[in-house]
Amino acid sequence: MTDYSRRAVLLMGSAAVLAGCTAVPRGAPHRREVLAGADDFEPGEAPPFTLVEVRRETLPELRNWPMTGFRPPTGWPAAGNGPTAPRIQPGDVLDLRIWDSETVSLFTADGERAIAMPGLRVSPSGHIFVPYIDEVHVAGLTTDTARRRIQEQLEAVISSVQVQLVLASGLRNSVDMVSGVANPGNFRFEEMNTSILGMISAAGGVPEGLPNPYVTLMRGGQVYGISLSEIYGNPARDIALRGRDRVIIESDKRHFIALGAAGSQQVVRFDQQEISALKAVSIMGGIDDARADPRGLLILRRYDRGQYGNPGQPATERVIFSFNLTNADGLFSADEFQIHSGDVVLATQAVATSTERVLRLFGSTLGFGARVSDIGGSSN
């Protein structure tokens, strides 16, 4: 068989294989294969999915579409300092010691100079009972201010009296470190303005084996959330805790699925508050420059019932977002498009890659080079 004949056989065989369903192994589908069937539906039926080309023009509308997948609490309180000393609150327990230098005292027995009155619980109305002066309102005061108030009222009865006051305990001046630390429990403020990182440290820190820690803060009927890495990276996020705060630290449950002609194919957990499509490509090892189609980055997303079919919402339950990473608009748009938990990020395979594999297959079979340039070479 002449070289010309061999080239003809190769061209005809290659065309036949490329025209049909080839058995050439590959790690990802082509873009056109994934999008096939977009128009395959009967009149009156909803299309099987919606294809959205993500560009500068479409981004504003897409930002208003509903969030999908698992959604942890978001938002974070603004940084700000409170009082530097704990404030006495209803339910707190105070230890009171009264000193009296008088020989005959209303408080102390013979030979004693002080009497201890531990375990004085602040009433719901904010008072404690002290003998001879009845109830004293202490809620909202620092321990030093409350001590002076009690002493001033006692001095009207015993001029030489002195008062010592200690805030022993109280839920309203403590924080619950619920989970995600080495030593969870209730931690009382030694002083106010204790930051969340300071309290995490007091609780033994976050175990190294906890992947992508996410912090949930429950405060006054509100629930806030942020990734721990963002607190580490931004001092303004290291806010001062308040009494009765509850802190829960657990692994961020959000994830996306990386598939196709990329550096890795796996379930990828979120490692920060927001992940763009471009960041997702980077996390999954980039698209394979030898196999991937940079015009065919696809993100597959499913919307819940009630999140599609209405004005300002996706038209269908299933939506495929398409990105062209070969131009500036596509790259910028991918960097502004946010990944949702549960998204599938698919790097499709370039058609030219499959073509080259077919040519190599036939070239190997016929015993000559597999390069495309060989086909167009001159005959002898």
Rank of each mutant, 00 (worst) to 15 (best):
R113I: 10
N324S: 12
L11S: 08
M199P: 03
S179L: 03
R172S: 09
A46R: 11
E274R: 15
L366W: 08
R172Y: 05
R269W: 05
S160C: 00
D238L: 05
R7A: 08
T108H: 08
A79N: 11
P131T: 05
R318Q: 15
R188E: 11
M284Q: 09
I158K: 04
L11D: 00
S378G: 00
G44M: 02
E112I: 02
G80D: 02
F70Q: 12
G37P: 09
G225F: 04
S125D: 15
S179G: 03
I133K: 04
E191A: 13
P73C: 04
L171H: 00
P184L: 04
H127S: 06
L94Y: 10
L51C: 01
A352F: 05
G363T: 10
V122C: 06
A182T: 12
R147Y: 05
V17A: 06
P25C: 09
Q162C: 00
D289N: 12
G44L: 01
I150A: 04
A116P: 04
V104S: 14
L120F: 09
D304W: 04
Q307G: 07
Y232S: 11
V247L: 12
L141Q: 10
S174F: 01
A15H: 01
L217Q: 03
H30E: 12
V181K: 01
P314V: 04
F362N: 07
F129T: 14
A79T: 04
D304L: 14
D144E: 14
P48L: 06
A203N: 03
D144W: 01
P86H: 05
L106K: 07
A350Q: 10
Y303N: 08
L165D: 03
F323W: 07
V268M: 14
T348K: 09
A277E: 12
M117F: 15
F49K: 02
H137I: 01
G296P: 07
S364T: 15
G91Y: 05
A328Y: 12
I150M: 06
F321N: 03
L297H: 08
S322E: 13
I98P: 03
Q265W: 11
V161S: 08
T216G: 05
N64V: 00
I150D: 06
R295A: 13
M218R: 14
L197G: 08
N212W: 04
A202I: 01
G342R: 07
M284I: 05
R237D: 13
I249Y: 06
A347P: 02
V157S: 00
Q313P: 00
T316M: 03
V267S: 14
S14N: 08
A182M: 06
E274L: 14
S378Q: 08
H340G: 06
F270C: 10
R31M: 13
R31V: 01
R302T: 15
A19I: 01
A261C: 10
R147F: 06
A261T: 08
T316F: 04
S159K: 13
A236Y: 03
R97Q: 14
F332L: 14
R149A: 13
S364W: 13
Q338Y: 13
D238S: 06
N212P: 02
M1H: 09
S322H: 08
T103E: 13
A146T: 09
R188S: 10
T365F: 14
A116E: 11
I200V: 11
G198A: 12
Q349D: 08
D288R: 11
N380Y: 01
